[in-house]
């Protein structure tokens, strides 16, 4: 007979010994094979390598499978409302500049119901990191079309094919003026870890688009096979993340390139801006 498995004990035994110190005692409720495991793994490791302390991190999520993320990360976690992780995370950061603040959202969450908040967090350049878990489908509600579902793709809300054209998340983020825009892939946790680290370190709003398969409800578009075949790293010799034109071209034509697409390090974050304005004579 096998020994009963106690996650709490397992974690206690490895606590302070590595990235597992960022795990809570909860077993993830995601479907076996879901891409979200890989993303979570990358975020744990990035936090560990940056030397962040659990209590200094605040992870704010919306509703959806992606929204469950903070249940599994041992930080100050706040699972809010569908579409609202970004403004709540912004509120946390504005109140407490000392905290490292994440917003976690699915594609439906961040680009559909909560899409109206994105331009504003970007133009304010609030120093938070948005992890957009993009599986191009509504996972939690069982497979309806989302803002990133392909045109013509059959989903549970569009059985004869999605009549709407998907948005391009990276292009949107660039157009909205996000000061850090990157793409990662759930199937490449090691590469994603580096992107996550750069995003967290960036002072200002960081937008991290992470493609991830929903193995249960998307059998045709963002499948493991499709994503693996299509994804390739950005050729850093050919692309300069400081160049907006090049970033825009890449956003338009290279939907599966992974790496840092755009980065404006000179732009002041919201708090820095406030401090600078306070110094100016009235």
């Amino acid at each position: 007979m096998t020994q009963p498995f106690h996650l709490d004990e397992q974690i206690a035994s490895v606590k302070d010994k590595g990235f597992l110190s960022f795990r809570t005692g909860e077993l993830p409720t995601w479907c076996p094979g879901c891409g979200y495991f890989g993303i979570t793994d990358a975020i744990y490791k990035a936090c560990l390598e940056l030397g962040l302390k659990n209590e200094e991190i605040c992870a704010v999520s919306g509703i959806g499978c992606a929204g469950r993320f903070p249940v599994f990360m041992n930080v100050y976690g706040f699972h809010t409302l569908h579409g609202r992780s970004v403004p709540v995370a912004s509120g946390v950061k504005l109140a407490r500049e000392d905290l490292t603040v994440f917003a976690v959202a699915g594609d439906g969450d961040a680009l559909g119901i909560g899409g109206g908040h994105l331009p504003h967090v970007a133009r304010r350049n609030i120093d938070i990191t948005l992890f957009l878990f993009d599986n191009s489908i509504y996972g939690l509600t069982k497979g309806q079309s989302s803002a990133t579902t392909l045109y013509g793709q059959k989903t549970s809300s569009h059985p004869s094919g999605n009549p709407d054209t998907p948005v391009n998340p990276v292009k949107l983020a660039l157009a909205y003026g996000a000061s850090f825009v990157a793409r990662g892939f759930a199937g490449d946790p090691e590469g994603l870890k580096h992107i996550v680290k750069a995003a967290i370190v960036h002072k200002g709003f960081s937008f991290v688009h992470i493609t991830s398969p929903c193995v249960t409800f998307d059998k045709s578009n963002f499948t493991w096979n499709n994503l693996k075949e299509n994804h390739s790293p950005i050729d850093t010799g050919l692309h300069d993340p400081g160049n907006m034109e090049s970033a825009m071209r890449m956003a338009e034509h290279e939907r599966f390139k992974i790496g840092i697409i755009f980065k404006d390090e000179k732009r002041l974050s919201y708090h820095d801006n406030l401090r600078q304005m306070a110094l100016k004579p009235k």
Binding site: P87, A89, S90, L94, A95, P119
Partner: peptide, 25 residues
């Protein structure tokens, strides 16, 4: 901190974020 938000949903979201972070909002 004063913030003019994009809508009232964002206003109350910021208040709740700040409240979660331990500040009066």
């Amino acid at each position: 901190i004063f913030l003019q938000t994009e809508d009232e949903i964002s206003s109350i979201a910021h208040v709740i974020g700040a409240g979660f972070a331990g500040e009066r909002a």
